[in-house]
Amino acid sequence: MRPIFRVARATFHEAWRRRFLNGILIFAILIIGSSWAFAYLQPGAELQMVIDIGLGSIRFFGMLIAVFLGTRLVPDEIELRTIHTILAKPVSRAQFLFGKYLGGVGTLAANMLLMGAAFYVVFAIKAPQFLAEKPEDAMIVAAMYSNIAKAILLTFFEVFLILGIAVVAATLFSWVLSVIFTFVFYFVGHMSDFFQQLSDPERGASKIAQIVMGALYRILPHFEIFDIREAILMGTYTPWSVMFKTIGEGVAYLVVVLLIGYLVFNEREV
């Protein structure tokens, strides 16, 4: 375990020196910070606009960071040949790969925390103003405080999963291809209910479609499970059982992804 954390720590420190990462982070915080300025676009739904832009930005930029960081973590080491001196030490490939991933997780978590904090501040400032105009929504807004924290927590696991996919994709493909692959995976993962509908015999799916689309539905990650926006807007309570199930599913999928990454990287020449 020790080498994993050593590699992770080095990765974390190194990642903060990546200019594009800092750029994305600053841009994201600017957008989140100014989300209230966009709110006038939707009169009567200002708070919703703030939430949509804020949470949407955290997710979107978290995803961007995950993809661009994840696809660079291992290839950079290989291209700069820093990996040679590390793997010549008593560090197995699995330890190296998981260490890089863990370092990426740390970096991502720090970035997400900053973005989340920025959004929370904006929300805390904006919510009372909204309440003054629409007092009947008091219950909904009260529930928002915990729901938004939960939504950000789930987004963490969503981007961790994307990071895992990006890291593993980069051990399989060239950089450009792995970026495209990860994006497509993310998009298709968000459309996974499409495959479920296509495999639905009630909608006239053939036997083959049932099997193929059903398998696709099972294989693809279901990124929409990390989305509890409806609960935020409706002011309903999001039970912890649902949170744990969601995180459990995300972590289980991540384990599969990292297992595949291990199987590939263990045979990879560097």
């Binding site: 509908q197 099972r218 279901h222 999001t238 649902v242 289980a252 999928y253 384990v255």
Partner: peptide, 27 residues
């Protein structure tokens, strides 16, 4: 493992439907 996740996913999807969290895109 991918297939083992499925029952958990089904249970979660049901919970989400009950809570009104699930928003299937009407493709």
């Amino acid at each position: 493992m991918l297939f083992a996740i499925h029952p958990l996913d089904q249970s979660l999807q049901y919970d989400r439907l009950v809570l009104g969290l699930r928003q299937p895109t009407p493709w």
